[in-house]
Design a protein around this nucleic acid. Structure first.
Lengths: 173, 173
DNA sequence: CGAACTGATTGCAAATTGAAACTGGTTGTT
DNA sequence: AACAACCAGTTTCAATTTGCAATCAGTTCG
């Protein structure tokens, strides 16, 4: 049922077998840029309104593929924490490049594309710093990373810029 | 029926609405790296074995979205030439980055990943040269570009490297 | 004239998607 | 102890999408 088909050994093809659906990269985006680490957070704070069965299926698949890890939240015996694994963290350059392309060629909104713009302008040095931050939040200490106890300078900058644009275009928030 | 849904104005989301299926990027890859410009070429020389109805639907959609253009082939009143439009040409950095990621994290074959490797090592200067080549083959003169009358230095290098690896690993092929 | 080739279309079964309701359990409040 | 709110999903079912195989009408070549 899951895993990939391996229609061919081409890197682009295999990448599309893993990420080539409407939701997988969007879920990874929310975990990465929004630090959304719980099922309910991913479900209800999703800009695009993902359905719960689709989210459950995607998370299960991403865990099986090794892009995401799942652990228990010590604060609540039933709560699960989802974290990005190294392969997903290394998607930062892909998401940066794809975001830059989308910003140029698709009808994006200003508030939702400011982070893509900063990430593009920051270039490789920023991507590397961001990936280091993500390793601290997702790999080294997922529990503290999920709780907000660990700061990420890059994510902080991106989030502040986003909030600033949002406050400007819709002051009532 | 086609066009995008616009679930949100996020660049990543919109990019996935355009490219988030198993075939669109694979078709663009074949046009870009294999210079496959006719329906039958895309259909029968596809490494992954796309079905004819899926290919027809994808081409129609990509044309409607402005990523691909379609024109008639003067050598055959029924033959159509498909060419990459500027937005698709600007996917070169995305494909390069995605290919590099796939090569690192997925079970790729050597012969089908040599081009991804060269494109990654070549970096931005190579991507820019490649995009210039593609503009000559696809935008400036699609007919001559499809016929093989125009040379692309970058594509030539990539193709030779691919043929060399292929000859080495399967001398009879 | 007929075979091969052109870009597709059609019919149909199987798989996937998506919305809404629901499940079984935990936690916090009164 | 009772109850509401919250937790990660699951179930159900209709609609859509996918993939395969066969087919199509027109064109070119021998």
């Amino acid at each position: 049922m899951q895993g990939i088909e391996r229609r061919s050994g081409c890197p682009i093809n295999l990448a599309m077998e893993v990420l080539g659906d409407r939701w997988s990269l969007v879920v990874i985006r929310d975990m990465m840029f929004g630090n959304r680490r719980h099922f309910r957070e991913l479900l209800t704070r999703s800009e695009e309104g993902i359905a719960s069965n689709i989210l459950a299926a995607r998370l299960k698949r991403l865990v099986a593929l090794g892009l995401v890890t799942r652990c228990e939240d010590p604060s609540h015996s039933q709560k699960a924490i989802y974290s990005l694994a190294e392969p997903a963290i290394q998607l930062v350059p892909v998401l940066a490049t794809l975001g830059a392309w989308g910003r140029r060629h698709l009808p994006v909104s200003e508030e939702l594309s400011i982070r893509a713009q900063l990430l593009e302008e920051g270039g490789e040095p920023m991507w590397n710093a961001f990936m280091d931050d993500l390793r601290r939040l997702h790999v080294e200490d997922p529990v503290a990373g999920a709780s907000g106890a660990i700061a990420s300078p890059v994510l902080g900058d991106l989030t502040r810029a986003y909030e600033a644009v949002r406050a400007r275009s819709a002051p009532a928030g």
